[in-house]
């Protein structure tokens, strides 16, 4: 009896709400609420206690009133100390340059795959995705062995006689670019491919019939049509790369850190949770616009798959 009633409830409007409510509840509890906590702590003062920050609302000494302590000091500290501004600027520069290199390498590859024969296309796609399934950390680590002074790259260059002194490659900006491009390249290629694959090739034929040279046809037809793919690929690389932590830690300079590392150092080494939270909020606000643009693209892409 009760079981039948339960089934009835689950089948109706209530059931619908329960089904919607389950993922909603999870994401609210473990994605939205944590951000609110970070936001809150970014206004606290650091304190030697556990947890090491002052509460925002405190009873006054006489115990009669609540007092709100809303402290902008952490944000002021970030602006006043040129170290943080330089770190933000450096992170954005590294992410932007890496994104452009990814685009320059990924576009021709995506194009080649999209125009390949159908049978080879799936194989090529699998080859692009396969490294993604193997550990990201280990793939970054592989470059340590390749780039160090007695590493493979230097040994090869010495052996063929292009250089007579080993180049300093590891722990430089160059190494960080290599690491980011290497790790994120599939994220550039896949959205580009899914865009390029959908193009109507008769447009190119028409252009050729009308006397357009292949390069002109590419610049006037293929490139404009592929802009949504370019935007999606660039955002998929750029946004996570700004906050990248592992790659600069393993391959990058020690005199210029990226913002992800600074956040983590503030938190773990300095135990300054409020400043770490403020860094996270500033980073998040800076990335909000790209994240929203990416979400619009992503949702449109899924809707477009509907037949």
């Amino acid at each position: 009896m009760t079981l039948a009633r339960l089934k009835e409830i689950l089948a109706g409007e209530y059931g619908r709400r329960v089904v919607i409510g389950v993922p909603y509840a999870w994401l609210l509890a473990f994605f939205v609420v944590p951000f609110l906590i970070v936001f809150k702590i970014s206004f606290s003062e650091v304190r030697f206690s556990m947890p090491p920050y002052a509460p925002l609302f405190e009873l006054t000494e006489d115990g009669a009133h609540w007092r709100a302590i809303f402290n902008l000091g952490n944000y002021h500290y970030l602006i006043a100390d040129s170290l943080y501004i330089a770190t933000f600027a450096y992170s954005i520069k590294v992410a932007a340059v890496s994104t452009l290199i990814c685009l320059a390498i990924g576009y021709p590859m995506a194009y080649a795959i999209a125009r390949a024969r159908e049978s080879t296309r799936n194989l090529l796609l699998m080859l692009i995705v396969l490294p993604f399934w193997t550990s990201f950390l280990l793939r970054v680590y592989a470059w340590v062995g390749l780039l160090q002074n007695d590493g493979v790259v230097n040994n090869v260059l010495l052996a063929v006689g292009l250089i007579d002194q080993p180049l300093t490659l590891l722990y430089t900006d160059f190494a960080v670019y290599v690491g980011i491009v290497y790790s994120y390249l599939p994220f550039m290629i896949l959205p580009l491919y899914s865009n390029l694959e959908k193009h109507d090739l008769t447009l190119l034929e028409a252009a050729a019939d009308l006397g357009a040279r292949p390069m002109t046809a590419f610049l006037r037809i293929t490139l404009p049509l592929s802009i949504p793919g370019i935007v999606a690929g660039c955002l998929l690389v750029f946004i996570p790369a700004v906050g990248e932590y592992v790659i600069p830690s393993l391959l990058g300079r020690s005199d210029q850190l990226m913002i992800g590392r600074v956040l983590s150092d503030e938190f773990f080494a300095n135990r300054d949770w409020p400043v770490a939270s403020a860094v996270a909020i500033v980073l998040l606000v800076g990335l909000l616009l790209p994240i929203l643009v990416f979400q619009r693209y992503q949702n449109r892409e899924i809707e477009a798959a509907r037949r």
Partner: peptide, 10 residues
Amino acid sequence: TAPLVMPEVI
């Protein structure tokens, strides 16, 4: 979709 691109440190 937000966690797809959210920097891991955040």
